[in-house]
Amino acid sequence: MAIIGADARMHAMVSDPNLPLVRRLEAVGFRAWPASSVVFDGSWQVRLTGGHPGKRLNCVVPLDPSDSRDIALRIEKAGKRFEAHGRPLLVRQTPLSPRPLIDFLASDGWECFEEVVTMTADLGRMTFPDTLDHLPTQDVGRYVDADIAVHGSDPGLKAALAEILGNIKPASGLFVIEDAVKGALAAALCVQDNDLAGIMSLAVRPDHRRQGLGIEILSSALRWARMRGARTAWLQVVADNTEAMTLYTKMGFEEAYRYAYWRKASA
């Protein structure tokens, strides 16, 4: 069994006392960060995006703990689909994943990596710090340039990121903090889906961290969502990103559930 880069308890993470919340957050997450191609194999969602390599956009996501038939055959079928798209096959494990599937992956030479924490916060109880309030920009190109700059992403992904943003159906707020000389310092994407507001992306330029810009832009995004009627905020953060976890906890976020990815281990 290969469980690498994630706590061993992820192997047993196939049930959760609040599965209705997990199902709802998974559903709004799919709408807030849409893949260009989505097909279903039973209750397994197969997500592929040719123009963008993001893991959330290119993975198999099981959505029913009881759907564990023909695992080997379905994994093989998914693998061929991913290969045709030039993508490595990834399986995203959430509390909705069937235990027999996780057992199969662990025994078949797969490895578990990148544990991610999904967090929620009650916007009605949230008190925002006294920081500058920023309004969302309507200029998608400006936001895309800022997002790529602060993340240090490949500029070649600009068109793909713009396409993803254009495919988001719920209301989305694009937030940017800029300096007239230095350019983009921080960027955040908030997607409001009825009473839920998801922070889908938030980053501060490395040389401007620990200066309050993270709280400033997050507060602006959450204020915007609350004014539009959102009551609960949610986000996802890699478990070992202690700086971000500290920021979100300080803002009132609490852990709801965790997920991780599985990939075939290298020979």
Rank of each mutant, 00 (worst) to 15 (best):
M1V: 13
I3L: 14
A6L: 08
M10F: 10
M10W: 06
A12L: 12
P17W: 05
R24A: 13
R24M: 08
R24T: 14
V28C: 12
R31G: 10
P34S: 09
F40H: 14
D41S: 05
G42I: 04
S43I: 06
V46H: 02
R47E: 00
T49R: 01
G51Y: 02
G51C: 06
P53H: 00
K55V: 09
R56K: 13
R56C: 02
R56M: 08
L57Q: 03
L57E: 05
C59V: 05
C59D: 03
C59M: 04
P62D: 03
P65W: 06
S66F: 10
S66V: 08
S66H: 13
S68V: 05
D70Q: 13
I71T: 02
A72I: 11
K77T: 14
E83M: 11
A84Y: 07
R92C: 13
Q93E: 11
T94L: 05
P95G: 05
S97W: 09
P98R: 05
P100F: 09
P100S: 08
L101Q: 00
I102P: 00
G109F: 03
F113N: 06
T118K: 04
M119E: 12
A121T: 07
A121V: 08
P129K: 00
L132V: 12
L132D: 10
H134C: 09
D139F: 00
V140S: 04
G141T: 03
G141K: 00
G141W: 00
Y143E: 09
Y143D: 13
A149Q: 08
D154L: 06
D154N: 14
K158D: 08
A162S: 08
I164V: 15
G166V: 06
K169G: 03
P170C: 08
S172C: 14
S172Y: 07
L174R: 06
L174W: 02
I177P: 01
V181E: 13
K182L: 11
G183M: 09
A184F: 10
L189E: 11
V191Y: 02
V191N: 02
D193Y: 05
N194A: 15
D195L: 09
A197C: 03
A197T: 01
G198P: 00
S201N: 13
S201P: 01
R205Q: 11
Q211I: 07
G214H: 02
E216Q: 14
L218P: 03
L218F: 10
S220W: 03
A221R: 01
M227V: 08
R228C: 05
A230D: 01
R231E: 15
L235S: 00
L235V: 06
Q236A: 14
V237I: 13
V237T: 12
V238T: 15
N241E: 04
A256S: 15
Y259N: 04
Y259W: 12
A260S: 15
Y261A: 07
